[in-house]
Computed example of a mutant assay.
Amino acid sequence: MTARRQEGNGLRLAAVAIALLGCGLAGARLDLAARAATSERIVADRYTGLAIGGFDPVAFFTDGRAVQGDPAFEVSQGGAVWRFSNPDNRAFFIANPDVYSPRFGGYDPVDIARGVTFAGTARLWLIVGHRLYLFGHEDTRAAFAADPARYLHDATRRWAVLKETLAQ
């Protein structure tokens, strides 16, 4: 075999190795996407277990704004870790988790009304009828604010079925 042909074979082997490596990385990326798509009944960070990004759910009601919780004041409830900005808020939550936790597990109610789950964020929120709602997009929050009764009717009906498809 000539030196030129040997070089060509080496290049082909390198190309095959790079292609196999690329396939392995693509498979890893697909696996990561599949794990990220796993849905829970309460929106929580899959690495830390923190609900609503570690924000204090009671502070939305008491302070009227999103307040980052303190790791010194946390509680595990419903398969998620909830953080609070002070011990009183922690106590309020423990006494009434259904009142202070976001409705629909923290999923965007407009998307729930459409029959899909999309995680809300603590940065986009509203309190309507003494309940906290989180939204995934500014436009869904605006639509909900314009006609909450419409979305709540459909979301409540669909949530009963959707939550059964989510992991506990």
Rank of each mutant, 00 (worst) to 15 (best):
T2F: 11
T2C: 05
E7F: 08
G8T: 14
G8F: 11
L11P: 07
L11H: 06
R12D: 04
R12T: 07
R12A: 13
R12H: 00
L13G: 07
L13V: 13
A14I: 08
A14L: 14
V16N: 03
I18M: 05
A19I: 10
L20C: 10
L20N: 05
G22V: 00
G22H: 07
L25M: 12
A28V: 09
A28L: 13
A28R: 14
L30I: 03
A33F: 04
A34K: 09
R35Y: 09
A36L: 05
A36D: 15
A36I: 02
A37R: 13
T38H: 09
T38E: 12
S39D: 09
S39Q: 14
S39N: 08
E40Y: 15
E40G: 14
R41P: 02
A44Q: 10
D45P: 01
D45F: 04
R46V: 12
Y47N: 14
Y47I: 15
Y47L: 15
T48R: 04
G49T: 07
G49F: 02
G53A: 02
G54Y: 03
F55E: 03
F55K: 07
D56V: 03
D56R: 03
V58Y: 00
V58P: 02
F60S: 01
F60E: 06
T62Y: 08
D63A: 15
D63T: 13
G64H: 05
G64N: 11
R65N: 04
R65Y: 04
R65C: 08
R65W: 04
V67F: 03
Q68K: 15
G69E: 06
G69D: 00
A72S: 13
